[in-house]
Design a protein around this nucleic acid. Structure first.
Lengths: 153, 153
DNA sequence: CTAATTTATGGGTAATAGTGGGTGATAATC
DNA sequence: GATTATCACCCACTATTACCCATAAATTAG
C-alpha cells in the first residue's frame, strides 16, 4: 500500500453544518490504531494542526516528562493541551471542527489543508497567502542553516 | 537488466484524461520497493520534479528531523511537502499529474521528460527552450566552481 | 524479413470522493 | 416536563478517479 504519511495540498469548504472534509488520502494514511480519529489543536501559526491519534499520544508522553513545578513547563503543557480535541470523522470522511479553533485560524468558509508528513495544517486561504508573502520568506542563509541542521543530526 | 538510474530525454503529450506516459526505461529503473510509484512535486525552476518513492522517503526522513517549534523549520518543511504527491502509474505506465503542478510548470499539452540520474524533470517544451537559451548558460567560472565542489566532497 | 512482444495512446465502466441534506437520539433550556 | 438546539448517523446525487480492455506504432527476436 502507498505511503503512510501526509503530503499535498487540498482545498475544501465548510458546509452549512460546520463540517469539513478530510482528504481521502489522509484518511487512508491513518494507522488502524488511530480509529478514524484525528486530534486537532491550535497551531503556532494562525492555523489549526491535526495529528493522528497515535502521534498525539506520543506528544502527550513528551508532555508528561515536563515538570509540574516549573511555571514555564506548566504554561507550555497547558497551552498544548487546552485546545486539543479528538475528532472522529463520519462515514463520509468529515469532521466538525470546534468553533474556537476556527476562530483562532480565522476560518469562515474555505480551508486549505496541507500535509506535513506527520501532521496536518488547516488554513484560511487568504491568511495562508499572506503568510507566504511575508512570514514564510526564507532567504539563502536560512535555507543553508536548515540544510546543515538536517545533515548534522 | 539495465541501469537503475534515470537518463535521457523523452517527449510525450497529456491525453484527454490528463494522463502522461512515463518512459518505460524509467519505470524499469524503479526499485521494487517503490511499488510503481513516483512522487512528484514543484521544481525550483518552472518545472515538475519526480522522485522514486524510495528517494522521497529519504527526503521525508530528513524533514522529520526539523523542529516543529522553529518557524523557519516549519516553513521549510511546509514548502517541501505541500506540493508533493505520490503517483502510482496504471497498467499502461501512465500517471495523472495534479493540476496545480501542471500550472506551476506551464504545461498544457506537450511535455519533455528528462532523466537526471536520481530524479526526473518534467518540462513544457517551450519553457525549457527558453531556459536553455538564457538561464542555463554556464560560463567557465561556473564550471570551475562545480569542479571544485565535486572534488571536495 | 517476418512474427512476437513491448510501448504509447485512446476510451468504457465501475468504484470512490466530495457535497448536500434528512431524521432520530441526546442534551440543554425554559 | 415540554421545547428547542445539537449532534451522530444515514441516505442520495454528481464529478472524478481507478481499473480494465483495445488498438496502432515501434521495437525486439527468430
Amino acid at each position: 500500500m502507498g505511503t503512510k504519511t501526509f503530503t499535498g495540498e487540498f482545498r475544501y469548504s465548510i458546509d452549512s453544518k460546520g463540517r469539513v472534509n478530510i482528504p481521502a488520502k489522509f484518511r487512508k494514511a491513518l494507522p488502524e490504531t488511530s480509529e478514524d480519529t484525528f486530534v486537532v489543536t491550535r497551531g503556532l501559526d494562525e492555523n489549526i494542526i491535526a495529528y493522528s491519534l497515535d502521534k498525539w499520544q506520543q506528544i502527550e508522553e513528551e508532555l508528561l516528562k515536563l515538570s509540574s513545578r516549573l511555571p514555564g513547563h506548566r504554561a507550555y503543557k497547558r497551552q498544548a493541551t487546552r485546545f486539543a480535541s479528538p475528532l472522529k470523522f463520519d462515514s463520509q470522511g468529515r469532521v466538525a471542527i470546534p468553533a474556537n479553533l476556527l476562530q483562532h485560524a480565522g476560518i469562515e468558509k474555505d480551508v486549505v489543508i496541507i500535509g506535513m508528513i506527520d501532521e496536518i495544517e488547516i488554513w484560511d486561504p487568504e491568511i495562508l497567502k499572506r503568510y507566504e508573502e511575508t512570514v514564510f520568506q526564507l532567504d539563502a542563509e536560512d535555507i543553508e542553516a536548515i540544510d546543515n541542521y538536517t545533515r548534522s543530526s
